[in-house]
Design a protein around this nucleic acid. Structure first.
Lengths: 199, 199
DNA sequence: TAAAAAAATCTACCTTTGTTAGATTTTTTA
DNA sequence: TAAAAAATCTAACAAAGGTAGATTTTTTTA
């Protein structure tokens, strides 16, 4: 019986190893450089092993992105903020921190410079983040219709994701330039403005 | 002498034909489906002909994107708006119209779902659009430092590009859903809010 | 106008990559 | 310990970016 356990454990480890390998390579060289052969090499197997666990390369990417949404959600959930007016603002900053610390992962999740946006598929992971944000909005402005919260969520995402996209696109340029730039400050002002406008 | 003209004319036509072919294929199947062989096929030559005009595939994409910025700029410049407070708002809408009418081109220009953002390279075409926007801002809020206009431009781009990115990402989803959605209205409200905040 | 030079274009190949069929090795079962 | 099952690999395919060198076409020159 324990040999069966060992086997399933090993399979599980191999599976996560594949995902980890994909992340590692992307971190160093970007998603376009992630190949099945490199992944196999990193887990010390031959290429076909990847297809034992995933239908194709896209499925590997999809799962990596999915894990990304889970991480992002748990980061958002971990924040306990009493002040309901500061909550949304704080969420925006956390969102930004996540993107800053995992730029490649973020790009994969939202289809920047890589493959079509996985966020667009709207699986459960994505929807539940949406609920989190909408709840924060309900605290500020109660008694709106569901449709209206949807619109507000969309607008909020425009601001936050727009900021992150621009920041990631311009990152290396900006770093080289003399003028200091305070990304968090920009984002904070923008979200404050938004919160003020809806309350 | 006229045979030399005919030849240069033909070369010029072939060059633009290659660019056009790339656009055509992307329009139908997306940028990831654009191959050198397909381009060559469309212009009725063999693959190596592409390399007579462009260093590699990326160079073809780059030039297509560059033309996109030229088109966008001329669309912005074509608008003559007296009311300086409405100008920025109108610019945002034109920007959106451009993205809506040329979604694939826009994605290429800003690195959505495709290759790294060409906008990040900041060639002249991109910079001159920036100047256009900054001038509109100067009309509303004069006497700021250059650095401050830079920040405002960045913020404005976050709003507009964030909106477009989200709209393009969510497009097919949204179209399927029952609730009507008024993209232009959302964008207009967001930019109005911004303009109000800077004046 | 015919040979030589230059220009335009192609054929045939290389390498990398995603992917798969079928063989081989290893492990488990009876 | 032999047969069955599972795990894994070898060897190949096709499609793609890219290029060297051959071939065809056009132009030049004597």
């Amino acid at each position: 019986m324990s040999s069966i356990d060992r086997k399933t454990r090993h399979k599980e480890a191999l599976r996560t190893g594949i995902l980890q390998a994909a992340r590692n390579i992307a971190l160093k060289e970007g998603w376009q450089a992630v190949t099945i052969r490199k992944i196999a090499d990193e887990v010390e197997y031959t290429p076909p092993i990847v297809y034992e666990f995933f239908e194709n390369k896209e499925a590997v990417f999809f799962e990596v992105a999915m894990d990304g949404f889970t991480i992002l959600r748990s980061m958002l959930e971990a924040e306990v903020i009493e002040d309901k007016h500061k909550k949304l603002c704080r969420y925006a900053i956390i969102h930004w921190h996540f993107a800053e610390q995992n730029p490649e992962l973020y790009k994969l999740m939202f289809g920047i410079e890589s493959i079509p946006s996985i966020a667009a598929e709207r699986p459960q992971e994505v929807l539940s983040i949406g609920e989190l944000i909408k709840n924060a909005m309900k605290a500020i402005t109660p008694d709106l219709e569901d449709k209206e919260y949807k619109e507000l969520f969309f607008q909020w995402m425009c601001i936050v994701h727009g900021f992150i996209t621009m920041a990631l696109i311009m990152r290396h340029r900006i770093e080289k330039e003399p003028d200091a730039w305070e990304p968090e400050l920009y984002l904070e002002r923008a979200t404050r403005r938004f919160i003020k406008s809806i309350q």
